[in-house]
């Protein structure tokens, strides 16, 4: 290493001390039961373990031995990742998958644990939730009377709904057609309102979306 790069390194080091980067914006956390087994963030978020495939320090050093012809850089799973997850497309029941951006990924992450079967937690996974299907009909097999996952919030079709902007002022809607996903009502990092709700479970909570 020559002196120039040493100086540069020193400068960089100094600057990082004198100008500390702004702390990343973290959601207020109160993980409660989402701190599964004391794993903290790792209960849901998988770190990249810097494996060989990532080009980082080798941890497992594992590559797929039956598939050696793949470039090593491609040997890592694409998993939950805020930057890329919306690029993975899936639909809640129903029609074909498309390669388009799909907000439903946000719910899939929840459902990989809350499958209603092996989790001790309650919400059932809904395989069908068609727009406009009534609560408890045979179509939805009684599961869509709550948890309107993947329902577009569309005041033009249902005039008893608040305007989209009114909702999104306090609750997130996902995707281009403003669908309700798990994260619309739930903040999985904060159980302050119990049941990981974004808002207190009272009458005011209703009127955020409903007129």
């Amino acid at each position: 290493m020559n002196s120039k790069s040493l100086t540069l390194a020193a400068l960089l080091g100094l600057s990082s001390f004198s100008l500390p980067a702004a702390a990343p914006r973290m959601p207020k956390t109160n993980l409660a039961t989402h701190d599964v087994g004391g794993n903290g963030c790792r209960s849901c978020h998988a770190p990249h373990n810097g494996s060989l495939a990532n080009g980082g320090t080798q941890s497992t050093g594992a590559i797929l031995m039956w598939s050696r012809s793949f470039p090593a850089s491609a040997n890592t799973f694409l998993v939950y990742d805020s930057a890329t997850m919306a690029n993975k497309a899936v639909e809640l029941g129903g029609t074909a998958l498309s390669a388009s951006t799909d907000a439903r990924m946000y719910s899939l992450l929840c459902l990989s644990c809350h499958d209603g079967v092996t989790s001790s937690f309650s919400p059932s996974m809904q395989t069908v939730n068609q727009v406009g299907s009534k609560a408890g009909t045979a179509l939805s097999l009684g599961l869509s009377n709550d948890h309107p996952v993947n329902m577009p919030h569309d005041p033009t079709r249902n005039t008893s709904l608040q305007a989209v902007a009114t909702v999104t002022a306090s609750l997130p809607l996902y995707g281009s057609n403003n669908t309700v996903q798990c994260g619309s009502c739930h903040e999985p990092h904060n159980n302050g309102n119990t049941r990981f709700l974004r808002q207190a479970n009272n009458a005011a909570g209703c009127t955020t979306c409903h007129l």
Partner: peptide, 14 residues
């Protein structure tokens, strides 16, 4: 297995 996204690691093994 451990938690992670590389081959041989798991997130929700079922």
């Amino acid at each position: 297995g451990t938690q992670g996204d590389a081959p041989g690691e798991f997130i929700r093994p079922k």
